[in-house]
C-alpha cells in the first residue's frame, strides 16, 4: 500500500515533468491553426511554415553565431584563468571567485539592465555584439565552475613529471594539462552552447533589431499563439537532447 503510494507519487511527478514537453511534440503535428483539443487532423504543415519563415531562420542563424563566438571566446579567456585559480594563491582570489559567479547567482534581469545602461557609455551599442559580450560574461561562470572541479581531480604528478622531463610551464600547459582535461572542455563547451542558445533575460535588454531564437519565439508568442512555435520547439527540444547526450558522454569519459 505504502509502496504504491510512493511509486505512484513519483510517477505522477515524472508525468508532470514530461507531459507538457510531449504535448508540444504532439501538437507540432497538428494540421489546425489553433492549438485546440482534441486534435482533429494531423500534418507536417507547421514544419513547412517554419522552414519558410525568413525571420525565424535569421534568428536561428543569429543564435548560432552568438552561441559559437561566445563559447569560443569564453573558453579562451576562461580556461587559462581557471587553471590559474586552481594553481595559484593570490590576493583577492576568493573575491574573484565570487565575482565570476555573479551572473549565475544574481538575477539575469539586473545583470541585463546593468549592461543595458553601461554598455552604450563605453561605446558598445545594443546589437548582437552586445548580446555576445553579455553571454561571454555569464558563460565564464560556467567554464570556471565546470573546469575547476576537473582541475581538482587532475593528478598533480602529471604536471610535475612534465617539468621533471624538462618541459617549460607553457609547453606543459598546452601539451600535458589541456589534453588531459580535453573531454571536460568539450563538455563545458556543449553546455555553453546550449545555455547561450536559450538565454533570455540578458539578451532581452541588449538586443537591437536582430533577434536571437528565443527572443523571436517570445515575439511570436506575444503576437498570439501560432502552432509554428510547436514545430520549432520540438526541434529545439530534440537538438537539446542530442547535445545533452553528447555532453554526458564526454563528462562520463572525464570521470574514468
Amino acid at each position: 500500500m505504502r509502496r504504491i503510494f510512493t511509486t505512484g507519487s513519483a510517477a505522477l511527478v515524472l508525468a508532470f515533468i514530461y507531459l507538457p514537453l510531449l504535448t508540444i511534440i504532439w501538437y507540432s503535428f497538428s494540421a489546425e491553426s489553433v492549438n485546440s483539443f482534441p486534435i482533429k487532423a494531423y500534418s507536417l504543415e507547421w514544419y513547412k511554415v517554419m522552414a519558410n519563415d525568413e525571420s525565424l531562420l535569421r534568428a536561428v542563424g543569429n543564435s548560432l553565431r552568438v552561441a559559437f563566438f561566445s563559447t569560443v571566446i569564453a573558453l579562451f579567456i576562461g580556461v587559462p584563468a581557471t587553471f590559474a585559480l586552481h594553481k595559484f594563491d593570490f590576493i583577492g582570489k576568493k573575491l574573484l571567485e565570487r565575482i565570476v559567479l555573479m551572473p549565475i547567482t544574481l538575477p539575469g534581469i539586473v545583470t541585463g539592465v546593468a549592461m543595458l545602461s553601461f554598455f552604450p557609455k563605453i561605446g558598445v551599442e545594443l546589437s548582437l555584439v552586445a548580446v555576445g559580450i553579455g553571454h561571454i560574461t555569464f558563460l565564464l561562470a560556467i567554464v570556471v565552475t565546470q573546469l575547476l572541479s576537473r582541475f581538482k581531480r587532475l593528478d598533480p604528478n602529471l604536471e610535475q613529471a612534465a617539468y621533471d622531463l624538462g618541459a617549460t610551464p607553457l609547453t606543459t600547459f598546452f601539451t600535458v594539462i589541456i589534453p588531459n582535461i580535453r573531454t571536460a572542455i568539450i563538455g563545458a563547451a556543449l553546455l555553453c552552447l546550449v545555455l547561450s542558445m536559450d538565454e533570455i533575460p540578458v539578451t532581452f535588454f541588449l538586443i537591437a533589431r536582430d533577434n536571437t531564437l528565443p527572443i523571436e519565439i517570445y515575439g511570436m508568442m506575444r503576437r498570439g499563439i501560432t502552432p509554428e512555435v510547436n514545430a520549432i520547439s520540438t526541434l529545439i527540444f530534440l537538438a537539446t537532447i542530442v547535445i545533452l547526450i553528447l555532453s554526458l558522454r564526454f563528462s562520463r569519459k572525464t570521470n574514468d
Binding site: P20, L21, I24, D198, I200, M221, V229, I236, F237, I243
Partner: peptide
C-alpha cells in the same frame, strides 16, 4: 528538462 529552453517549457503551458 533543466537543459530544455525556458521559452519552450513556458510555451507548453500555453497549449
Amino acid at each position: 528538462p533543466f537543459w530544455v529552453s525556458y521559452i519552450v517549457r513556458a510555451y507548453s503551458w500555453k497549449i
